[in-house]
Design a binder for these strands. Structure first.
Length: 487
RNA sequence: GCCGCCGUAGCUCAGUUGGCAGAGCAGCGGACUUUUAAUCCGAGGGUCGCAGGUUCGAAUCCUGCCGGCGGCACCA
């Protein structure tokens, strides 16, 4: 990665530069403007599926892509051309092209982008091919591509230079094509169910809607600090007050936290809110959405994502794994003693909600391979969720887990402004006690609630993690085009 | 932040006890009219992540730093 055009290791670059200059000297433009009328390679292949080995056609096709391999030289050669849809073999013949054009075609470098007009035939070995009748250089490649058989394996290079990963790897192209299908399927599903897509501020004067530390930035003209959003929740609920009834936003959130296999500092989040719904309605729609998206994106994994998913209350989930009933240990020290008595670590500085979270993430989450809703969380862990209609001290909230990973968080939304104000007060107390993730007081949000928000259910779904589930990847970096890296 | 593993040619990788830094692909020169990782001949290509140290001699041993991966901690 440290080479440059004039220094060491430049022999390979110099050779390509020489070719570039000789092309220009021969009057060939190495970077032409366009190449209209190109057919996807997959479409060409599909059009000749029934062609037998050794059979020829008179059908001409125009294709374009990157030169990936070359076999043979002299009077006849075979080239492999790759576009986004697939790969096809080209046959170059001196008796078709003439000596000069043949020489020009064969002196192209692997990695060059070319356009070809060719006649379809199937080789004696059964390979669908195009006999090159005419070709054009579409863009000269001035750097050598990754190795043609082993591809690009170095993980660091694949992440820092995703373009090389993509141009070298069919799997990489397929993965990000699948990701695109997931995202378009999400939109299609929600659009069809009466939701409208909205865009709320990324730069926010006050952050909120999740427990996380924000990134800060500065606006020069206004001379003030802004936060990059950690969630869209509070703005979206203001739209419910405004009467939009069913809204969703699909976009980036930013959280100033550590980086690991399930966390990237910027990540793609889906949130939707629907009036007159509670968390049971949300759970049902969530199940259907994931099943739909899985089907639309060609999911072939082992998980059964079809509704209904397993449902377990948080308290029962913890009870069955650890024999600790958090309902009987409502006091912080009492719970800590119960954990210690069973040999579980109970960090001294942890609050009661943090101890519960410890039990959940250490002892429950890893066991949740099949899609599962964990229901009903303690009030103190959920400042924006509505009190449970019959379970004292709990809220109507669920988190959805798949493959041992949290992929969604949802609740029956708190719409009582006075109760919301008390929850903010409690958060302020936590902040005073040093909790860096406590919610800041958002007066504009409270005021909005005072105008009246309908009973509402809402959810956030981590799209990167959903893509991980649907593509069987264990690291979020595999499903993010340009994951965060050190400089 | 802590622990472990890793960093060698453009790419994929070898490199023995510390003893002249290698192969394949790619590239360069040449041969070749049905190849499929084409084949054959020839000549090249290196700051062994960076900086120190030990040693007659370091890719190899030691220390520090940079970067990556995994784990722990942190993390709706």
């Amino acid at each position: 990665m440290a080479e440059d055009a004039s220094g060491r290791s430049s022999e390979l670059l110099a050779a390509r530069r020489r070719k570039l200059e000789s092309l220009r000297a021969a009057g060939i433009e190495p970077f032409p403007h366009a190449f209209p009328g190109v057919e996807p390679i997959a479409a060409v292949r599909a059009g000749h599926e029934s062609l037998g080995a050794g059979e020829e056609t008179e059908q001409s096709h125009r294709v374009a892509g990157r030169l990936a391999a070359r076999r043979g030289q002299g009077r006849m050669a075979f080239l492999d051309l790759v576009d986004r849809s697939g790969q096809i073999q080209l046959q170059a013949r001196v008796d078709v092209l003439g000596a000069e054009r043949m020489e020009q075609l064969l002196s192209l470098d692997l990695g060059d982008l070319i356009g070809v007009d060719g006649t379809a035939f199937r080789s004696r070995r059964g390979e669908l091919s195009l006999r090159v009748d005419a070709f054009a250089l579409l863009a000269k490649s001035l750097r050598p591509p990754p190795e043609k058989h082993h591809g690009l394996k170095d993980v660091e290079t694949r992440f820092r230079h995703r373009e090389l990963d993509l141009l070298a790897s069919e799997d990489a192209r397929a993965l990000f094509t699948t990701r695109a299908r997931v995202i378009s399927a999400v939109r299609r599903f929600l659009d069809r169910e009466g939701f409208i897509e909205v865009e709320t501020p990324v730069l926010q004067p006050l952050y909120g809607g999740a427990a996380a530390r924000p990134f800060t930035t500065h606006h020069n003209a206004l001379d003030r600090e802004f936060y990059l959003r950690i969630a869209t929740e509070l703005y979206l609920k203001r739209l419910l007050v405004g009467g939009l009834e069913r809204v969703y936003e699909l976009g980036k959130d930013f959280r100033n936290e550590g980086v690991d296999t399930t966390h990237n500092p910027e990540f793609t989040m889906l949130e939707w809110y629907e009036a007159y719904a509670d968390y049971e309605d949300i759970a049902a729609r969530c199940e259907r959405l994931v099943a739909y998206v899985a089907s639309e994106s060609g999911y072939e994994g082992d998980l059964d994502l079809s509704p209904p998913w397993r449902r377990e209350t948080l308290a029962d989930a913890i009870l069955t794994r650890t024999e600790i009933d958090i309902r009987e240990h409502g006091d912080r020290d009492d719970l800590a003693r119960a954990m210690t008595a069973r040999g579980l670590s109970a960090p001294r500085e942890d609050t009661w909600p943090q101890l519960v979270d410890e039990l959940l993430s250490k002892h429950v989450e890893p066991t949740l391979t099949a899609p599962t809703f964990i229901l009903d969380y303690p009030v103190s862990m959920s400042p924006f969720a509505k009190r449970h209609r019959c379970r004292e001290g709990f809220v109507e909230r669920f988190e959805a887990y798949i493959d041992g990973m949290e992929v969604a968080n949802a609740f029956t939304e708190l719409n009582d402004p006075d109760e919301q104000r008390r929850r903010f007060d409690a958060q302020r107390a936590l902040a005073g006690a040093g909790d860096e993730e406590a919610q800041p007081y958002d007066e504009a949000f409270i005021e909005a609630l005072e105008h009246g928000m309908p009973p509402t259910g809402g959810i956030g779904i981590g799209i990167d993690r959903l893509v991980m589930v649907l593509t069987g990847r264990r690291s979020i970096r595999d499903v993010v085009l340009f994951p965060a890296m050190r400089d």
